[in-house]
């Protein structure tokens, strides 16, 4: 890894990290602030929710109608959108562009005329990207924890919260690794932001469909979202080795593959 490049990339991406973190944290905190009102008008909301098809509730992230009235259940449903979806978009856009930007911005010729190997370039950018994803998850996790503490109605179990946070981070990491592969595979120097956003949304859509009642949801495992166990209120909810192994194993494979491709790639500006 090259510290000069790493530091430059850190400064270059700090603003974007701050904005994404701020927006996601604000959304989490703002949404959780409604939880008090949800509890306050529990009867009326229950009446309304009963009119909503359960499929729609599941699609929104609620596994059970009573999840709405549990702090952790309420948080988990929103976490799917805020951290799992938005965090993954951030992660993938960041990792794909951090490599490709040198090419489509025509700065690759400058960078690659320095005494720095492709391995060092890749490692520096990867380290920075994953650090940013970690910081985003850490900040969002802290804000989520504080929000739950502030707006909870009773005690909430910390362990499921931590496990969900870990899964979310691993999901974001996976999409980050996928972003690196896409960047490495791109033959032409052009931004892939829309493609990455689209890909995450397609996976999210598959995941959502697979959760609908009456649908055999096994096909949802095509989507990495499905690899996250979001049923935080289910008894026995905890870390599952296979899920962690799948995330880490596939992410490592994708990173290694993208590093290998990048080392052999023609840098076209």
């Amino acid at each position: 890894m090259n510290s000069i490049l790493f530091n430059m990339e850190f400064r270059r991406n700090a603003r974007s990290l701050f904005l994404w973190s701020f927006i996601i944290c604000a959304l989490i905190f703002f949404t959780m602030s409604f939880f008090h009102s949800v509890l306050q008008y529990q009867q009326q909301i229950m009446g309304m929710v009963k009119l909503v098809p359960m499929a729609a509730m599941k699609a929104r992230g609620f596994g059970n109608i009573n999840d709405i009235f549990s702090g952790l259940g309420f948080y988990a449903a929103n976490n799917i959108v805020y951290m799992m979806l938005l965090g993954s978009i951030y992660s993938m856009v960041l990792t794909s562009n951090i490599l490709l930007k040198e090419e489509y911005s025509k700065t690759a010729e400058f960078l690659m005329s320095r005494p720095i190997s492709r391995n060092e370039i890749f490692a520096s950018k990867m380290a920075l990207a994953f650090l940013n994803v970690f910081i985003l998850n850490l900040v969002a996790g802290l804000v989520s924890f504080i929000s739950l503490e502030v707006f909870k109605s009773g005690d909430f179990r910390v362990q499921p919260f931590l496990v969900l946070t870990l899964y979310t981070f691993l999901l974001n990491l996976f999409f980050g690794a996928l972003g690196f592969v896409i960047a490495a595979l791109m033959k032409r120097a052009r931004p892939v932001t829309f493609f990455c956003v689209g890909l995450v949304l397609v996976f999210y859509f598959l995941f959502t469909i697979s959760r609908l009642s009456g649908v055999n949801g096994d096909f949802g495992y095509i989507s990495p979202f499905k690899w996250v166990n979001v049923e935080v209120l289910k008894p026995g909810y905890g870390p599952e080795l296979w899920r962690i192994a799948v995330f880490l194993g596939l992410s490592a494979c994708l990173v290694l593959a993208s590093g290998f491709i990048y080392r052999k790639k023609d840098i076209l500006t």
């Binding site: 911005s105 025509k106 010729e109 400058f110 500006t269």
Partner: peptide, 9 residues
Amino acid sequence: YVPSDANLY
């Protein structure tokens, strides 16, 4: 190296 039309950061 001076590139022909490379951009700068």
